[in-house]
């Protein structure tokens, strides 16, 4: 149970988050919080030529939400926006190795993906409204 959740790797990302901080000249910055827990995540993206050139996050909250955000930044760094557009809940839960969380804690794990998707919508809505609509419609996170 909890031993399977709070594995070494989760605690490591919680205590030593990767890509944490602000990003100067970010193209997109998005913030969201989980009203139940008060978990908070900000994601900053630098995008160029359809590729995420840099990503950083800021946040506070439980080990699951913060480790998940840290691992998400590693996952998307240098990736094509098209690939990220298709990221699903399941991909994230697999990425962090937590596939049997209860409904309350799943929200913690997925907060950073939700913020990232909002960021993508924000980015696309300026130059590619169709993709923005598509992410909105496909994403059950909204």
């Amino acid at each position: 149970m909890s031993d399977d959740i709070y594995r070494e790797i989760i605690l490591d990302h919680y205590r030593n988050p990767r890509n944490k901080g602000k990003l100067e000249n970010a193209d997109v910055t998005v913030h969201d919080s989980n009203p139940l827990c008060g978990d908070e995540i900000d994601i900053h993206l630098k995008v160029d030529g359809g590729v995420i050139r840099d990503v950083k996050f800021e946040g506070k909250g439980c080990a699951i939400s913060q480790a998940s955000a840290s691992m998400l930044t590693e996952l998307v760094m240098g990736k094509d926006l098209d690939v990220i557009k298709d990221l699903k809940k399941e991909d994230i839960l697999e990425n962090i190795g937590l596939t049997n969380l209860g409904p309350a804690r799943i929200k913690c794990a997925l907060l950073s993906l939700k913020v990232l998707k909002v960021g993508m919508v924000k980015y696309y809505s300026e130059n590619d409204p169709k993709s923005a609509e598509q992410i909105k419609n496909e994403s059950s996170l909204y």
């Binding site: 909890s2 205590r15 827990c37 978990d39 439980c62 080990a63 804690r105």
Partner: peptide, 14 residues
């Protein structure tokens, strides 16, 4: 320590 209350509550639930 640095255990977030939600993580503690999850462990308590076990």
């Amino acid at each position: 320590a640095d255990i977030h209350p939600h993580d503690l509550a999850t462990i308590m639930n076990d």
